[in-house]
Design a protein around this nucleic acid. Structure first.
Lengths: 131, 131
DNA sequence: GCTTGAGCTTCCAGCAACTGGAAGGCCTAT
DNA sequence: ATAGGCCTTCCAGTTGCTGGAAGCTCAAGC
């Protein structure tokens, strides 16, 4: 199967698939004309990557998950640990974003939003509080 | 004022300050020995950048905010629009992260987390639902 | 005067995870 | 034969820094 069809089936752009080969996440064979030739198993790996990337795992985490995926002897605890770690990171990011949001919306609420130059947002950014 | 002191006052690493000069966000003068020489106004700009970056604005947004900062004729509505746009983006990111978290925690909850190979997380990543 | 150490300079490279584009080969159909 | 669409490789760019090497300057201590 050529890269175009592999792209369709895995829902990944061809560029990304080539990149995944560069960093040794997939190793398709080659046809006699030099074209990449993807097996069913390659497609499984690509789909797996697509799904795990979309769940926010980094490439290196995907590499780990992929090795667990292909290890029939894996312990489910190992996989669960990776997932739980990711959940912690996500919680942390959400917390940060909420805090940013709070600050920004407080600033925006205090801003008249008219065509006058007076602006509490700028004042805050400039370090001038409660002028 | 040398870069080290500018770094202390702006709470930005010297490397970052030099980078901001590379991308034309600050233009300090030079002392006779070739050292960068930061004025009070330069420090204001650096502080402004530090604060706006920490609030999640991109470099290009900071550049815009900085030009508004130095424009005495600015309309506060312009600044408010940038802030509100950012709030929308933050909301979007939070929503995405919450959705990721939900999926991941559902998967982790269904996983025994023992030393057996059976693992619903891997099954999901591989595209095998509800086996 | 000399050395030491901190602080400054420039430049080059690398991080993550792709993405875009150029130059060219291949394949199929008309 | 030619057009187009797909494929190949390679190089460069994205964002926002950060690390490191090689070398200059400056102030302090002996």
């Amino acid at each position: 199967m050529n890269i175009g069809e592999a792209a369709r089936q895995s829902e990944l752009p061809p560029k990304t698939i080539r990149y995944y080969e560069d960093i040794a996440l997939v190793k398709p064979s080659r046809s006699s004309n030099g074209y990449r030739d993807y097996s069913e198993n390659d497609i499984h790996r690509l789909r797996f990557l697509q799904r795990s990337r979309s769940l926010g795992f980094t490439i290196e985490e995907c590499r780990l998950l992929l090795s667990l995926y292909e290890d029939d002897q894996r312990a489910s605890a190992d996989v669960k640990a990776v997932a739980n770690q990711k959940i912690i990171e996500i919680d942390h990011k959400i917390k940060e974003l909420r805090s940013l949001r709070k600050t920004l919306s407080a600033l925006a609420e205090n801003c008249h939003g008219d065509d006058k130059p007076d602006c509490p947002i700028i004042d805050d950014l400039a370090g001038r509080r409660g002028r």
